[in-house]
Computed example of a mutant assay.
Amino acid sequence: MGIKKLADLIRSDAPDAISQKEISDYSGKVIALDTSIVVNQFRAATPQLSPLTGLFFRTLTFLEHDIKPVFVFDGKPPVEKLAVLEKRAEAANWNSTNRTGTASSQTQDCHQLLKLLGVPVIQAPGDAEALCAWLVREGTVDAVASEDMDTLPFGGCILIRQLNAKKSSEVIEYSLSKLLTKLGISHEEFVDLCILLGCDYCEKIKGLGPKKALKLIQEHHNIENVVLHINRKTHPVPENWKYIEARKIFLDAPQTPAPKLIWSEPDENALVKFLCHDRGIKENRVRLRMERFRQKRESLREERVKERAAGCSRQTRIGDFFRVTRKRVQPTEAVGSSSSNRKRPKSK
């Protein structure tokens, strides 16, 4: 999924672009998530359970940590990606992939669940990953949480992996600006590198490993020049290679106006009706989880009251937990700059 062996290449050649984090480090942050990746994780891990259960539990965990999640849904996939999607569906014994972008019954259920949980949902025109990257570039969100490394060639400034509820899980953050600086290449050159490594939108040159691909891009700057400097016998170039189309998908992803993001209180009674009465999930699981959620939030409220009394209150108050987030000021830094330097919107 995403860019083949990119994570390995970053670890070996640009380790400074990686930070080890904890979920609590993202308290007060607005995080965009590719919903299909989250749902597919639960489908693969617990095929006997509805993915709605996992989505319900994980979303509450984010909210408990004062993380403001924004769930982005896939639209119509690029035609260049259909073959990859079909292979993935076949390998997982799932139904054929959605070629039209029309919301499936499962997608509609996820929409409804997230609405009842009070978190924003955005429909992407194409790949959700591309829109997530656009949102962080625009400053609408602080980071993208995804297991898919192609967030980076799409221009996602900050990518977070392994952001989940497991206490043993070590959250990993990637900085695109630090990555490009360390590798000494531009974003456009990085996109060509990712195509050479292997992406979802076209074939790759066989036999060309990550180290060799990076060296070639650093020396020759684009795929057109790389092709002129490789041994075509040992590294055959695919016939009718669609690398130009893939490059365009990464660099010219559809853009959409930054939406107004609104978080509200979860509707417990409506959640019970939807999840338990309509979808057959055990009511005691839902009720107990909502009770823990209320207790955790109350504990946070008490902690912040004590902090204010001690004169060291945090900038984000519990009263601001559910609020409207306006579009942030357009950042002046280049693509890949850290979200920590962006101006955050003022509370109403």
Results as ranks from 00 to 15, higher is better:
169 S>Q: 07
320 D>G: 15
92 A>C: 00
72 V>P: 05
48 Q>N: 06
77 P>Q: 01
200 D>W: 02
170 E>L: 12
341 N>P: 03
230 I>D: 08
348 K>C: 09
115 K>H: 10
10 I>M: 03
50 S>Q: 02
181 T>I: 10
70 V>L: 02
159 L>C: 05
91 A>K: 03
321 F>W: 15
27 S>Y: 07
49 L>R: 11
298 E>G: 07
95 N>F: 10
326 R>D: 12
10 I>G: 09
20 Q>F: 12
294 R>D: 02
13 D>F: 15
115 K>Y: 13
296 K>S: 14
212 K>A: 14
24 S>R: 06
113 L>I: 03
79 V>W: 05
187 H>N: 08
296 K>P: 10
324 V>W: 06
150 D>W: 09
295 Q>Y: 04
78 P>G: 06
99 R>N: 01
154 F>V: 07
75 G>A: 03
44 A>Y: 05
198 G>D: 00
18 I>Q: 02
252 D>L: 07
92 A>D: 07
30 V>F: 00
145 A>D: 01
296 K>L: 14
245 E>D: 11
36 S>I: 06
134 W>G: 00
221 H>R: 11
322 F>R: 11
35 T>I: 08
87 K>Q: 13
272 V>A: 06
12 S>L: 12
199 C>S: 14
150 D>R: 08
50 S>Y: 07
187 H>E: 00
30 V>A: 04
107 T>W: 15
42 F>D: 05
65 H>R: 15
38 V>C: 10
63 L>V: 15
213 A>L: 12
128 A>F: 00
206 K>S: 12
258 A>M: 11
295 Q>C: 15
124 A>N: 06
171 V>I: 00
300 L>M: 14
177 S>H: 07
80 E>Y: 13
136 V>W: 06
336 G>H: 01
335 V>K: 13
186 S>H: 05
214 L>Q: 04
277 H>V: 03
181 T>R: 07
223 I>E: 09
271 L>R: 13
214 L>M: 02
49 L>E: 14
319 G>D: 01
287 R>F: 00
327 K>V: 14
329 V>L: 11
290 M>K: 05
216 L>D: 01
